[in-house]
């Protein structure tokens, strides 16, 4: 039993997400910055009439942000009731992956992105990191805004 995954790259590494979690893929343009949002949030965009946060995966994984170019893509993903756009360097391919072939990530293999991983899969000679969507989107440190 295989499942379709969408492959994308962030800072030279190939990642995968289940394509059923990806609503659609867009070109990135006209991101409106949201003041005082987390550093990995580029801002907001309209996606099909909805206001969607644009989460920069480079920044999320601890890399420097890169300027937007023609290959930059916005992966609009759904997690429960949430819709979030992931800014990635490129997204081009769909591949079928057998979920059973996804191995737990080894700590040595991955850097900061390790905590956002579901596992690792080998497709041919390529190593692909399968993203844990919920962990990626979780806003870990909800700080209560003091009112006084």
């Amino acid at each position: 039993m295989t499942e379709p995954f969408i492959l994308f790259t962030v800072a030279g590494t190939t990642y995968a997400l289940r394509s059923r979690d990806v609503a659609h893929v867009e070109m990135v343009d006209q991101v409106t910055a949201v003041p005082n949002a987390a550093h990995f949030v580029d801002g907001v965009v309209f996606s099909r009439g909805q206001v969607v946060p644009a989460l920069n995966l480079r920044a999320r994984f601890g890399f420097d942000k890169a300027p937007t170019d023609l290959s930059t893509r916005l992966l609009v993903v759904r997690d429960g009731a949430r819709t979030v756009g992931l800014v990635v360097d490129a997204a081009r391919e769909f591949v079928p992956i057998d979920p059973a072939a996804i191995q737990p990530p080894s700590a040595a293999l991955t850097g900061l992105s390790g905590r956002y991983l579901e596992g690792v899969a080998n497709i041919g000679d390529r190593l692909i990191l399968v993203l844990n969507l919920a962990a990626t989107l979780t806003f870990e440190d909800p700080v209560l805004e003091p009112h006084t």
Binding site: A38, V51, V52, E145
Partner: peptide
Amino acid sequence: RGMADALIKVDGVSGA
């Protein structure tokens, strides 16, 4: 339009 996602909820902005 509402902006309720925790990622973009900031003080002083109510929507878009």
